[in-house]
Design a protein around this nucleic acid. Sequence first.
DNA 1: GATAATCCGGTTTTT
DNA 2: CCGGATTATC
Length: 740
Amino acid sequence: MGSPFDLDDDVSPPADQPAPSPWLAALNSEQRLAVETTEGPLLVLSGAGTGKTRVLTARLAQIIAQGRARPWQVLSVTFTNRAAREMRERVQRLVGAAAEQVWLGTFHALGARILRRHAPLAGLESNFTILDVDDQLRLLKQILTEEGIDAKASPPQMVMASIQRWKDRGLPPARLPNAEAVELAGGRGAAIYRIYQDRLAALNACDFGDLLLHCLTIFQNPAHADILADYQDRFRYMLVDEYQDTNVAQYLWLRLLAQKHRNLCCVGDDDQSIYSWRGAEVGNILKFESDFPGARIIRLEANYRSTPTILAAAAGLIGHNLGRLGKTLRPGNAEAERGPPVVVRALWNGAEEARWVVEEIEAEQRAGTKLGQMAILVRAGFQTREFEDRLIATGLPYRVVGSLRFYERQEIRDALAYFRVVAQPADDLAFERIVNTPKRGLGDSTLQALHVLARRQGTGLVEAARLLAGTDDLKPKARKALADLLADFARWRTLLATMAPGPLAETILDQSGYTAMWRQDRSPDAQGRVENLKELVAALEEFDNLGGFLEHVSLVMDNDDKSGGERVSVMTLHAAKGLEYDVVFLPGWEEGVFPHQRALSEGGLKSLEEERRLAYVGITRARRQVFVSYAATRRIYNRWQDSLASRFIAELPDATVETLAERGLSGGFAAASVPAWAPRPSVQAPVAPERSYQPGERIFHQKFGYGRITAVDGNKLDIFFDKAGAKKVVDSFVMPAENL
DNA sequence: GATAATCCGGTTTTT
DNA sequence: CCGGATTATC
């Protein structure tokens, strides 16, 4: 942060005093108050760019350095691993190694830590697995099928979402209000939820929501009052970051733990609440005072990030929301230059918009702004493509933040599933994932048989596999494959104790044939997948054992960018929260795009206000300048669609804005009703002509790319594709290559 | 059981 | 128009 904190004159100590503690250095008066009010419940309303991280770290450092509590008596919670890491590093710098003993982490990591200690009380063993979304969904689908629930009427995704929301609200199946599940799964929602939870327990597994939900169940059980009392005693001080994003379960968790010492400090900003669709409850901020009588509230309103103009624009916009707690950002530095206005630019279409944005980026770069200090923030992920195209065409280095995370890639998940089967033999979901990957001739029918047997015997799949391999219910081929696989598992498990995790992982991936599977794959991305597997093995070197690594992975799904050079960042507005840039581009400000159509048609005022907060978050990311833009027409799903400027544009105060429009686009607002122009006909994909093909001919296929015909049989072609290898394809799916 | 053809739906997603 | 998920076919 290059903010001029040192210009704040009310922090300078009197000359005859000893130098202040380092953690108090460079704090303004309101920040300092928030740091020094250590006793009793405290709510810090901290606007964008007002230095909340600084306050949190200073507060934590002070509590430890002054000996108000031992490090392990302090709980500090964040939402992201990034935030947790950053805080630990900063506190370490202030108080040294003591920082390592603080209970500092994400809600989920801390929940897992507590739950592992008391797992049996939640029907789990302490080495339980934390499932990823893939596994959860697979499990739920099984249940829905078994229960004869129509997947069309009740999409698994939707049922899953409901279950997650219940967990977000701290509701285990037993506490679910009767009315809740009626709409779901033909009225059987509650039953499904219960089965899902039972099945997780049988698998010795839990999902993310359970990490907190199980804690709550244990804490709230009068039979184990001693456990709760123990934690309540322990946590003398508690700090919470991004409090506006807490859901009910997290809130209850905090409230229970803070009950005894009541030294709970929550830092948040209701204007930056953008995750309500994930169960976050802004209401938690409002409830704070009533739940903790005598709570103090401190507002941080001095912004050290943005120019006065940007702050005024943001304030004007967010002022259109009702029911705010009320907070006005003011420039932290009274002498700051007003700064350039927010540029609002109307363009004809998306391609032009991308072109304009990239031109401005180049102009900024020429003027001395580093590429790493510029960001394009979009509403939805798909919008990044247009900008990527343009950036590539221009040759500007860029990075897309938050897309395809390392641990979510197919090959990584497969590899992890292998590790899980070895480290946690009861992990049926992992087993199922890899039992036929690579192909071993153990397909659906074998799996069905395993399921039936497992159910009948009341065992897990792996055990069922062992039984089944000993019978002759399977065809010899499948039986051999299964026995071989089990022998592999057994061998790897014996290595578990003796071999370092890195080499062990490599052994598993090699002997299972998994690496070979990708080596042989001709598809364009196979090469990269092999690379990713290598990276995974390399990452394992740092761990003592496989189990530790798996715990790490299930909790820490982050992707550090090790990109060295300066790059323009492209990301969603959600991903941008907490970040800052000199120059920020906010494209796609059109009704239906931003605010999003679904927010307009479904969620009513609440949704619209959340969209507005998202816009507010976007604007307040900028230190020096904001560029807003929108296109009069956009091609969505191959349809040209006229659009109107976002209402948020009109909500920016006139004095903060400079409007630029293309000739013909009136007053900066799309003349959508009078399209005085015609969209250029889109480049038509060549239509397959009615013709016959000859062997040897070069062709193109939508999915497989280019290839050469090796044989013709009526309308069926044998083709050897450059990338995908030999395939049989019907001729209407290909076109002569020279047509392109 | 593996592959090709067809169908369908299409925000945001810190763990 | 794209991709994934489902179905249809060999």
